[in-house]
C-alpha cells in the first residue's frame, strides 16, 4: 500500500525525519509511536504532502505521490487529527460531505454517503446533521472528524493522534470502534500516537521513532518480546511490558482441559482481562466458554502468567 524509501525531511540543519524506509501492507493498521518531537507527525504528513520531503520517495498504491498534483492526492487519502479541524461555519453534514463534493459526486450520492457514515459512527442523522461543530461534544466532534476523513471511501487513512483529546473511557470506545470499522471496510490506516497502550491495542504493526529515525518496525508482539534497542525498551516501560504482552493474546489460547468454579470467562477476552478477573475474584482458575456459550475448558493463573514471560 505505502512504500517509503530513504524518506528524509530537513529543517534548518536537523533531519527531523532521517532516511526512513518502510512498507505498509494494505488493509492493516500501522501505528507510529515515539516521544514528542521524534518526527512522527512530519513522517505522516509527508505521505499526503502536507510536508514536502527533502529527499526520498513515497509510493502509495504503486504511484509516486511526488508526481501527482497535491490536491488530487489528498482527495484520495483520508486525514484526521487530534484537534479535528472541523470547518466551524459548516454543518456536520456539510463537513462530512467535503471531499465527495470536491470530487464532484452528485447530490444524492453525497447525501446517502453522509447518512451511511453518520450511522456507522453512531451519530443520529435527524439530530446531528444540521448542527454546527460547536454544538457537539468533544467525542462527537472527533467522530465527525473521522467520518469526514472516510467520506470518499479512501483506501488509505492517515490519523495524527486522533484520540488525544478524549477522556480515557471515550478514548477506549473510540479505539474499539475504529478497529471494528477498519476490519469491516478494509481501509489501510497509518496512525500516530505517543500512547503505547493505544499502539499495542490498535496496531497490526508498530513503528517506533526516535530523533527522526525509525528504530524498529514490527508486529506488536515482536516489539514487546524483542525491543531493538534501549530506547524502544524504555518506551515500553519495564514494569508494564508483561501486561502489554498479555493484552495481545486471548484466553482461548491459554485454555487447558479441566473444570473450575465460578463465573465463566469468554474465550475472546484478552489474557490481560482474564488475569484481572482471576486476581479480583481470588480464584486460581476459571471456566472458559466460547462465543456460543459452550464450555471449552479452563484457564489458570499460572497458565496465564506463563504467557507473560519474555519468549525465547
Amino acid at each position: 500500500m505505502i512504500d517509503l524509501s530513504h524518506l528524509t525531511k530537513v529543517y534548518g540543519d536537523t533531519a527531523v525525519v532521517d532516511d526512513v524506509n518502510m512498507h505498509v501492507e494494505a488493509g492493516t493498521i500501522t501505528v507510529i509511536v515515539g516521544t514528542s518531537g521524534s518526527g512522527k507527525s512530519t513522517l505522516l504528513r509527508m505521505v499526503n504532502r502536507l510536508v514536502e520531503p527533502t529527499k526520498g520517495r513515497i509510493l502509495v498504491q504503486g504511484r509516486d505521490v511526488l508526481k501527482m498534483p497535491a490536491y488530487e492526492l489528498r482527495r484520495s487519502i483520508g486525514y484526521a487529527i487530534q484537534s479535528h479541524g472541523l470547518f466551524p461555519h459548516w454543518t456536520v453534514a456539510r463537513n462530512i460531505a467535503t471531499v465527495p463534493m470536491l470530487l464532484g459526486w452528485d447530490r444524492k450520492k453525497v447525501a446517502a454517503r453522509v447518512e451511511e457514515l453518520m450511522e456507522l459512527f453512531q451519530l443520529d442523522h435527524a439530530q446531528f446533521a444540521g448542527r454546527y461543530p460547536h454544538e457537539l461534544s468533544g467525542g462527537q466532534q472527533q467522530r465527525v472528524g473521522v467520518a469526514r476523513a472516510m467520506a470518499a471511501k479512501p483506501a488509505l487513512l492517515l490519523m495524527d493522534e486522533p484520540f488525544g483529546a478524549l477522556d480515557p473511557i471515550i478514548r477506549g470506545k473510540a479505539q474499539a470502534d475504529l478497529k471494528a470499522i477498519q476490519r469491516r471496510t478494509g481501509t489501510t490506516i497509518l496512525l500516530v500516537t505517543h500512547d503505547m497502550d493505544e499502539a499495542i491495542h490498535l496496531g497490526d504493526r508498530i513503528a517506533v521513532m526516535d530523533a527522526g529515525q525509525l528504530k524498529q518496525y514490527a508486529p506488536a508482539a515482536d516489539i514487546l518480546a524483542r525491543p531493538a534497542d534501549a530506547f524502544v525498551d524504555d518506551l515500553i516501560g519495564t514494569a508494564d511490558r508483561p501486561f502489554h504482552y498479555l493484552t495481545l493474546g486471548t484466553l482461548g489460547s491459554a485454555v487447558e482441559p479441566g473444570e473450575a468454579d465460578g463465573a465463566p470467562l469468554a474465550a475472546s477476552a484478552s489474557l490481560y482481562e482474564g488475569l484481572g478477573a482471576l486476581l479480583w475474584s481470588g480464584r486460581k482458575a476459571a471456566p472458559v466458554i466460547g462465543d456460543d456459550g459452550a464450555p471449552l475448558g479452563r484457564v489458570s493463573l499460572s497458565g496465564i502468567t506463563d504467557r507473560a514471560a519474555q519468549p525465547r
Partner: peptide, 22 residues
Amino acid sequence: PPAVVESASAMGMTGRQRLLKV
C-alpha cells in the same frame, strides 16, 4: 485556527478553494 486551515488542504482543496470556501 491552524487545524482548520490545514484540514482544508488535507481534504484536497486547492489554494483557491481553501481561500473561497474556508
